[in-house]
């Protein structure tokens, strides 16, 4: 821990939007007042997470095809639909980053941190020994994070004066809330069936 406390290093910096003069990159921790950079950092996080989400739903589809589902469990059409919505959300974020003058392909610190945190989810999802219910457990973690992420982004955009962006993010958040409800419901029914009880939704 001594090394940590002596270090002035950080995970990384947010690339400055196009048009910013001077240093190309500015440390995030020195940017408290640089509001747009904070927004770009969170948008980068959303872009990365939505792409991860699409790949996680692909893993779930693979499990479904091989192992099947259960009464009240997920079906192919809905899983594919959610995957498409995750992708659409990624494209929305990409467009927002570019409209703010940012580079939608750049990894921001928040994106980097969320990528590291998500690695464990992929380890479970791509493991051939796990079943669909266990992948739903992973998707539940992802959807809870997703919901909180969109809620945070919408609030941030609103406070920073990006009213139209905030409205779009709120719509996205409502879509994500449906994802969460579905995943939670599928998992509860699966676990309930396994235990021979009916869990209250």
């Amino acid at each position: 821990m001594r090394l940590l406390s002596e270090s002035d290093e950080h995970v990384g910096t947010v690339p400055a939007p196009v048009g910013v003069k001077g240093a190309v990159k500015v440390a995030v921790h020195a940017l408290r007042g640089e509001r747009e950079s904070v927004l770009l950092d969170r948008l980068g996080e959303r872009a990365s997470f939505e792409r991860s989400g699409a790949r996680l739903y692909e893993a779930a589809l693979l499990k479904l095809d091989v192992l099947g589902s259960w009464p009240g469990g997920p079906g192919r059409a809905r899983l594919e639909g959610i995957r498409r919505e995750e992708l659409a959300h990624y494209d929305l974020v990409r467009e927002c980053i570019e409209s703010l003058g940012g580079d939608s392909t750049a990894v921001t610190p928040a994106a980097d941190v969320t990528t590291v945190a998500t690695r464990g989810l992929f380890q479970v999802a791509w493991d051939p020994r796990t079943d669909l219910q266990q992948v739903l457990q992973v998707l539940l973690i992802a959807e809870l994070t997703d919901n909180a992420g969109w809620e945070l982004l919408a609030a941030l955009a609103r406070e920073l004066g990006h009213r139209q962006l905030a409205e779009r993010f709120e719509v996205t958040h409502r879509t994500e809330a449906h994802h969460l409800a579905d995943v939670r419901g599928w998992l509860e029914r699966g676990v309930g069936l396994e235990a021979g009880v009916e869990l209250r939704e």
């Binding site: 699409a54 790949r55 498409r84 919505e85 992708l87 659409a88 990624y90 494209d91 929305l92 990409r94």
Partner: peptide, 10 residues
């Protein structure tokens, strides 16, 4: 490569 399908999905 997700970007192509992301744009059509949106």
């Amino acid at each position: 490569e997700l970007l192509t399908s992301a744009q059509s999905a949106r």
